[in-house]
Each structure stands twice: as structure tokens, then as C-alpha cells.
Measured scan of single mutants.
Amino acid sequence: KRVEVKPYVLDDQMCDECQGARCGGKFAPFFCANVTCLQYYCEFCWANIHSRAGREFHKPLVK
């Protein structure tokens, strides 16, 4: 058996893009583990950032 640990998915993290400004101060539910991102995102910022060319295939890690 093999266990994969993702220590970078933490609870209670603010969106790295808007710092809570676009999501009413809620914590960010998404983390993008792609090396070009490596950031936490609220729903609004995830949709906005990941609609751009080259990022549309990134998969979010959801808390």
C-alpha cells in the first residue's frame, strides 16, 4: 500500500488571490496543486483564474 500525504491542504486559509474580498471573508475551499499555481482560491477566483488559457485543466483539491 501507498499513502499520499498532501500537507499543503490546510484548513482555514484565505483566498490567495482576493484575501476574502470577493467571497465575503469566507475561507478558500480550493487549492490548486499545479506547480504554476500552488495557491488557495475561493470559488469566484478559482473560476476566474482557471478559465484562462493553460489553466483550464487544473484540478482543485477541495477541503
Rank of each mutant, 00 (worst) to 15 (best):
V3H: 11
N48M: 14
V62I: 08
C23R: 06
F57S: 15
K59D: 08
E17Y: 07
A28F: 03
V35R: 14
C45N: 00
A28T: 04
E56D: 11
V35Y: 04
R2Y: 02
Q39V: 12
V62A: 06
A33I: 11
D11Y: 08
V9P: 10
R22C: 03
Q13I: 06
V5L: 07
R52A: 12
E17T: 06
D16Q: 15
Q39F: 03
V5G: 15
D12E: 07
C32I: 03
V9Y: 06
K59F: 02
C32T: 01
P29G: 11
Y41K: 02
I49E: 03
Q13M: 10
D11F: 07
R22T: 05
G24N: 15
K63P: 15
L61G: 14
K6Y: 03
A21M: 06
R52E: 14
K6D: 13
V5H: 10
S51K: 15
V35C: 05
F44H: 09
N48V: 12
F57K: 15
C18Y: 00
C42N: 01
V62M: 14
E56Y: 05
I49P: 03
E43Q: 08
M14R: 07
V9L: 10
D11L: 05
F27V: 11
F30M: 11
C45W: 00
C18P: 00
T36V: 08
A47D: 14
H50N: 00
R22L: 08
G24L: 09
Q13P: 06
V35M: 04
Y40N: 13
E17D: 07
L10F: 12
N34Q: 06
H58W: 00
F30D: 04
P7G: 07
Y41N: 00
V3T: 15
G54I: 07
F31Q: 03
A33G: 10
R55D: 09
P29Y: 08
A28V: 05
V5Y: 07
C23G: 10
K59S: 12
K1T: 11
K6W: 04
E4I: 05
K26S: 09
H50G: 02
C45T: 00
A53P: 15
K63M: 08
R52L: 11
K26C: 05
G54F: 07
N48T: 13
E4R: 03
D16E: 13
L10G: 13
C32G: 01
M14L: 07
E43W: 07
V35N: 15
V62F: 15
A33V: 08
G24S: 10
K6L: 05
P60K: 15
M14C: 08
H58P: 02
A33E: 14
E4S: 06
F57H: 13
E43M: 04
L61K: 14
G20A: 03
Q19T: 10
H58A: 01
P29Q: 14
C18V: 01
C42S: 00
V5R: 12
N34P: 00
V35P: 15
C45E: 00
Y41W: 03
S51E: 14
E43G: 07
L61E: 15
E43N: 10
N34L: 00
A47V: 06
D11S: 08
R2A: 09
I49N: 06
N34V: 05
C15M: 03
Q19L: 14
K1R: 06
K1H: 02
P60D: 05
C45S: 00
F30N: 09
R55Y: 15
F44R: 11
S51A: 13
G20V: 03
W46G: 02
Q19D: 10
F44Q: 15
F57W: 13
L61D: 13
K59Q: 10
Y41D: 01
E4L: 04
H58D: 01
D12I: 04
P60C: 07
E17F: 03
G25W: 10
F27L: 11
T36E: 15
K26V: 10
N34A: 11
Y40V: 03
Q19I: 03
L38T: 10
T36K: 11
E17P: 04
C15N: 02
Y8D: 15
R2S: 13
P60M: 07
R52H: 13
P7D: 15
E17G: 09
V3C: 00
D16Y: 15
A47P: 07
R22S: 11
D12Q: 13
R55K: 14
E56T: 07
D12S: 07
F31S: 02
A33D: 15
E56H: 07
D16N: 15
A53G: 13
C42T: 00
Q19F: 07
K6M: 11
Y8H: 11
Q13L: 05
F30K: 13
R22Y: 05
C15D: 01
G54R: 09
P60I: 02
H50A: 01
T36H: 10
D16A: 14
Q19H: 08
L61F: 08
F27H: 09
P29V: 06
C15H: 03
P29W: 05
Q19N: 03
A33M: 07
Y40G: 03
L38N: 15
V35E: 14
P7C: 01
G54H: 08
Q19W: 05
C15R: 02
Q39M: 14
Y8Q: 12
C37P: 03
D11C: 06
P60Y: 03
V3R: 09
A28C: 01
K63Q: 10
Y41P: 01
R22P: 03
F27S: 11
K1A: 04
Q13E: 04
T36Y: 07
H50Q: 01
R22Q: 14
K1V: 03
F44A: 13
V35D: 09
R55S: 11
A21W: 03
K6S: 09
C37T: 00
Q13T: 09
L10K: 14
Y41E: 01
N48G: 14
G24P: 06
P29S: 12
F31V: 02
C23H: 06
V35T: 13
P29K: 10
K59P: 05
F57E: 15
L38Q: 13
K26P: 02
V9S: 13
Y40F: 09
C15P: 03
P29M: 07
P7R: 08
I49G: 05
F44M: 07
G20K: 03
C23Y: 03
G24T: 04
K1F: 05
Q13C: 07
Q19E: 12
P7T: 11
D11G: 10
T36N: 11
Y8V: 09
F27T: 10
G54W: 05
R2H: 04
F31Y: 13
L10T: 13
D16T: 15
R52T: 14
V9E: 11
V5C: 10
H58L: 01
C32M: 01
E56R: 12
Q39Y: 04
V5I: 08
N48P: 07
W46N: 04
A47G: 10
E4Y: 05
W46M: 04
Q13D: 04
